[in-house]
């Protein structure tokens, strides 16, 4: 009796959950999920591709940076695991920007000076703060320093379970989202309609199209390449230690399996006479 009731209850709950899932799936049918791309920094051993990050930085500098701030220090561009520009390149790049000195000069005036590698990228010219940017664009363009980690999309059951499993793990949702958004301007008559943006009404009009940036390394100048490169670059900006983390993680994993194995056999040895 009890068993019967339980089963009925369980199947009722399951049916409800299923109905809910179907309803949810129908609701989101018009909101396609960003397609999943292949990234050099995906998987268990993946890492950033230096050349791709350098191209991505070029896209940022020539396109995105006119509206989006990106609060990271110039010096990180030369650190290992990133675009790895030379220190001289970074110094020259920093000096090409005017930054506001954090401390006043001897006359007590706040002044601007050429940047140094220790300085952060300054905000875009003309938009000294988010309010000023919002006044111009209707909505402040978000800081790009964490953008790739701050964007995700719902994967739904059961995919979110697989996303955690070794070999299937999925941590590049932010990159896929950024890539999809840049490729999502599919209504030529409405530049603020985006296929992948939740609700489709996006404040940013299509920012980039084929041929907009002149690549020096011969990579085809297509929107797809631009959006992949900028997505990879922003993934690095958001997670600059990824290469180090992966390398260290593999070492830790191998070590822990050895230690756990040794402890298992030690445990067996200790217990073998107790039973």
């Amino acid at each position: 009796m009890i068993r019967f009731k339980t089963k009925a209850l369980a199947s009722a709950a399951l049916a409800f959950a299923f109905a809910g899932g179907v309803a949810l799936a129908q609701e989101t049918a018009e909101q396609p999920k960003p397609p999943r791309e292949t990234w050099s920094f995906g998987g268990m051993t993946g890492g950033f591709d230096k050349a791709q990050l350098q191209r991505g930085f070029q896209v940022y500098k020539e396109v995105c940076s006119s509206c989006h701030p990106m609060t990271i220090p110039f010096r990180t561009l030369s650190q290992p695991g990133g675009p790895e520009f030379t220190e001289d390149q970074v110094k020259a790049l920093a000096a090409s920007y005017q930054v506001t000195s954090p401390e006043p000069n001897e006359k007590g005036e706040i002044f601007k000076r050429p940047g140094t590698p220790a300085d952060n990228f300054p905000r875009p010219d003309g938009y000294p703060n988010d309010q000023a940017a919002a006044a111009t664009f209707g909505k402040a363009p978000p800081d790009m320093n964490l953008l790739a980690k701050a964007r995700k999309y719902e994967r739904g059951f059961p995919w979110f379970v697989f996303d955690a499993l070794p070999g299937l793990q999925y941590q590049e949702m932010g990159a896929d989202y950024i890539h999809a958004i840049l490729n999502g301007y599919t209504h030529p008559d409405d530049l603020q309609w985006n296929l992948y943006y939740p609700g489709h009404k996006i404040a940013m009009p299509q920012p980039i199209s084929d041929g907009a940036v002149e690549y020096k390394d011969g990579t085809p100048k297509t929107l797809d390449n631009y959006s992949k490169d900028i997505a990879a670059f922003l993934s690095w900006v958001a997670e600059p230690n990824l290469n180090e983390r992966r390398r260290m993680g593999l070492g830790v994993m191998i070590f822990m399996f050895v230690l756990a194995g040794l402890l298992y056999f030690t445990k067996k040895r200790v217990w073998e006479k107790a039973h």
């Binding site: 980690k149 070794p166 941590q171 949702m173 593999l250 830790v252 822990m256 402890l263 445990k267």
Partner: peptide, 28 residues
């Protein structure tokens, strides 16, 4: 020794989260 073995196995799970899917459980 049994506890140490269990902690070591747990640490494998912990390391998996930290090093490979650190943002899986965090809210974007």
């Amino acid at each position: 020794i049994k506890d140490l073995f269990a902690v070591a196995v747990w640490f494998i799970l912990y390391a998996w989260l930290i090093f490979f899917i650190p943002n899986y459980l965090l809210d974007a």
